[in-house]
């Protein structure tokens, strides 16, 4: 679905020197995969995400979306139809005064026929569980609801891939749960490829694969169980491990026998309460 080959992104800094935001990133995201990207503030996560739908072009190497290079201007619109972006702040992504109009904004701009738009809006709102808010005013919704409307607005354009850049950063625990559950369902049931950037390690546990960025480079990558078992390395990178992995590591350090690869509370409970 998405492939980067030795991708590099740099820009001129305030004093004229080159600032390198991404260096030598080679990744691939398979169709239908759920990939989480984690990393400290300033590690290059958002910069990388912006390459995935051609908001930024590489200054070195390549970024390909279904074989189309993001560096070629003619590819920009086809790529953006394949890859939809959801950002951190739902208030910055909502444009209309009624939920259904907001969701219809994308397909309208694609020139979709009106009857088809109505069908897509219904479908997209159903996918995020917001059908009953169709005629509501978005600004009176909760943060989690707004973010689900923003996701519906992207889904109405029928992308194959969703790139979500810290979609839960501004939400409360309940809103976070709603958004993550929606994204997981879109991935598992609808087969939509997901790239999910987050600071919440508990959310990254839901992914098929985790990519850890540090200072613009890939520091670790692997299944969540592999990546999150490396508690000390994660902490050195300014990140946390999920609680269960952290506790498991401490128990091992205290001399208890705890199996490797524990990252959820349930796994820890099963291991300890045999």
């Amino acid at each position: 679905m998405i492939k980067t080959i030795n991708l590099r992104h740099s820009y001129p800094g305030p004093d004229g020197t080159e600032v390198v935001a991404l260096e030598d990133i080679s990744l691939s995201v398979g169709a239908g995969e759920f990939v989480a990207i984690i990393g400290a503030n300033g590690s290059g996560k958002s910069t990388l995400a912006k390459h995935f739908n051609a908001l930024l072009a590489p200054t070195g190497g390549e970024c390909l979306v279904e074989g189309l290079s993001t560096a070629v201007p003619e590819n920009m619109w086809p790529i953006r139809q394949k890859v939809g972006m959801v950002f951190q702040n739902p208030d910055n992504q909502i444009v209309a005064a009624v939920v259904e109009e907001d969701v219809a904004f994308g397909p309208e701009n694609l020139g979709v026929a009106p009857g088809e738009i109505a069908a897509r809006v219904s479908e997209a709102l159903a996918l995020v569980g917001m059908e009953s808010y169709r005629y509501h005013a978005p600004h009176l919704l909760s943060g989690g609801q707004k973010q689900r409307v923003a996701i519906a607005g992207v889904l109405a354009m029928r992308p194959k891939c969703l790139v979500l850049d810290e979609p839960t950063a501004m939400l409360d625990p309940q809103g976070r749960g709603e958004v993550l559950a929606t994204v997981v369902r879109l991935n598992k049931d609808e087969g939509i490829t997901v790239v999910y950037i987050t600071h919440f390690m508990e959310e990254a546990v839901a992914a098929d694969r985790v990519v850890v960025l540090d200072c613009g480079r890939v520091a670790l990558t692997g299944r969540p169980a592999e990546v999150f078992s490396r508690v000390a390395e994660l902490k050195a990178l300014g990140l946390d491990a999920p609680l269960a992995a952290d506790v498991a590591a401490r128990l091992r350090a205290a001399g208890l026998e705890v199996p490797d690869g524990i990252i959820t509370d349930e796994e820890l409970a099963v291991a300890l309460c045999r």
Binding site: A40, A169, H199
Partner: peptide
Amino acid sequence: SAGLDPRG
């Protein structure tokens, strides 16, 4: 702390 990484 909203929006900051764990170290932040």
